[in-house]
Amino acid sequence: MIPAAFDYEVAESADHAIALLAQHGDDAKLLAGGHSLIPMMRYRLATPSVLVDVGRLDDLRYIRTGNGTVSIGALTRHSELEHSAEMAEACPMLASVAALVGDPAVRHRGTLGGTLAHSDPASDLPAAVLALGGTIVAQGPGGSREIAATDFFTGYFESVLAADEMITEVRVPAGGGGWNYQKFNRRAQDWAIVGVAVAGGGAGVSLVNMGSTPIRASGVEAAVAGGASAAEAAAVAADGLEPPDDLNADAEYRSHLARVLTERALNAAGVA
């Protein structure tokens, strides 16, 4: 529970953070809310030699709506998503999912950009952004680029982000039909054993903790689009997946949960 030694730099701006990342190379990690990274460092599962603290970049804490899009600064805390009236109006799903992350302490420190960059397949918000068809804006030495959430996640704790890039903004469509998020866990503070996010009345469906990344349940989406009932669509939720085995659930039980929770989420989202 004692992290390995590391150096610490405070970024004054996004440009400064990216310059520091370029300067320190692969050994540097961005520190935002720290509620995923620091526990991993305490267990020595992560041993970055330099932490670049972007937690004070308050100009990246915002929620803006316009043109049918909600734009969220990367350093926006989960608790800000949870309690934002603007978010409740424009994208209540994201506000609702944010309220289910960890415990109040985690939600007051954790950031939307941080949880996406961390790319934990068991996290709630990445799957929600995926189901919503969100876009992730990343800035690097050469400028900014937009990455579709569907293209973002590549593996366990891995994404297409380069070592010298940082997420600056996340965009999700405003409004857009029935939604629901089913989170199944044993203690309120825990990661989902399995989670299911449904957005757009079943147009976007994603799964939490059913593989190495947040997974877009395209088979379920296609079934819904083809007029299948919630039960019929949910029946294919785990098809072709290789969910993990752990102390809470083996692969068979996880697949079962994915089907049960998908049906519940589709029903709650208005799919008959």
Partner: peptide, 25 residues
Amino acid sequence: DAVYNSDGQLVSTNLADYLVPSAAE
């Protein structure tokens, strides 16, 4: 549950894997 595998390794060595309930439970 203090879970051991067949090699005698304790698997539940942290409070994410060893589920002490909180006030919420």
